[in-house]
């Protein structure tokens, strides 16, 4: 019999650092009068995004004699927006979230997200606050140059001399080929996004945020996720991502408040799921009703806490900062 791996994979010093950073995050938000909240990990509704896979379980008991399918949240976004619509004001949450299919040196299928919403902020003002928090938490542990901010378009132009708004699948495939990126079998001929992700993960991300917080903002409309669109030619998704030392650390939105537009995006994502042979997910009608009632103008961001600890502790593997990662959970 194999020797049971009962010991934690993270050392005690790192676990102490986790606790210290959690305390400092709570102090940061307390000083700014942002309210800590808790929302359910289990929900009858789930995220529709095709690139995220929800765990599911069955509840049987009072109110559900024959069993009801419940999904573990991939982020606490939907119920937090219901709180915002109900007048909570600025809120934050430190939540354990769950994503099926994700394990690697920077992924564990359950991990800790710090998610917060700022009423009256747009995505640029929220980027300022993310930079303040990250700089404060990493001070004395990482030498950081001044943060930089560039658009998704500038990012691709700078690194690959390519305009992501205009490049066709043929252009993107040629760029990947010219840079020696091995092209995976089964890449679609009619969807540029997986090609952009291929170039991002292979050619850009490893060099992104070297020694400084790098914010990438203003995404393609097709990658807007839950961000509002700024009208224009082309329209722009008011979304941002934060990178540091090649690690994707946070994702934020100037939040979409239009219930009709949100419903169309859910339905489009479920249609994409159907086309890919993935399960269609139950749409969160409670969120849509809350948006209908009125979401205050706000920006929100989710920051991967485990990855922040990795950077603060100088660890290359997420398994070095989680006591019991999935392989020994």
């Amino acid at each position: 019999m194999a020797h049971p791996a009962w010991r934690p994979s993270a050392d005690l010093a790192t676990l102490r650092l986790r606790a210290e950073l959690l305390a400092r995050i709570r102090a940061f938000f307390a000083a700014r009068r942002v309210l800590e909240v808790e929302t359910p990990a289990l929900s009858a509704a789930a995220i529709t995004e095709p690139n995220l896979a929800s765990f599911s379980t069955v509840y049987t008991g009072p109110g559900s004699r024959y069993g009801q399918m419940l999904y573990l949240h991939t982020s606490p976004e939907f119920p937090m927006k219901r709180l915002l619509a109900a007048g909570s004001g600025c809120i934050y949450q430190i939540a354990r979230v769950f994503r099926d299919g994700e394990a690697g040196r920077r992924h564990n299928p359950e991990f800790t997200l710090l998610e917060w919403y700022r009423v009256g902020f747009d995505h640029h003002r929220l980027m300022d606050e993310v930079a303040e928090l990250a700089t404060a938490l990493l001070a004395g542990r990482l030498a950081l140059a001044a943060p930089e901010r560039l658009s998704y378009c500038e990012l691709f132009q700078r690194h690959l001399d390519l305009n992501p708004h205009q490049a066709s699948v043929v252009d993107l495939a040629a760029c990947a080929g010219a840079r020696g990126v091995p092209i995976p079998p089964g890449m679609p001929a009619d969807d540029a996004n997986p090609w952009l992700d291929l170039l991002l993960t292979h050619c850009i991300e490893p060099r992104l945020g070297a020694g400084r917080l790098t914010f990438v903002h203003d995404y393609l409309a097709s990658q807007a996720a839950l961000a509002r669109l700024r009208p224009g030619d082309p329209p722009i998704g008011e979304r941002f991502e934060l990178y540091l030392n090649g690690v994707e650390l946070a994702n934020g939105f100037h939040e979409l408040g239009d219930a009709g537009e949100q419903r169309r995006r859910f339905e489009a994502e479920n249609a994409a799921r159907r086309a890919l042979g993935l399960p269609v997910m139950p749409v969160d009608e409670n969120l849509l009703a809350a948006l209908e009632a009125g979401l205050p103008d706000c920006a929100g961001v989710a920051l991967g806490f485990d990855r922040l600890v990795m950077l603060a502790a100088g660890k290359a593997f997420i398994q070095d900062v989680i006591a019991f990662p999935v392989n020994i959970a």
């Binding site: 690139n51 690697g104 992924h107 997986p194 952009l196 993960t201 991300e205 990658q223 994702n251």
Partner: peptide
């Protein structure tokens, strides 16, 4: 074998 995935994007195994 390395798993890479943008938070909102396509996952790859390099």
């Amino acid at each position: 074998n390395e798993f890479v995935k943008p938070g909102k994007g396509q996952a790859f195994n390099r």
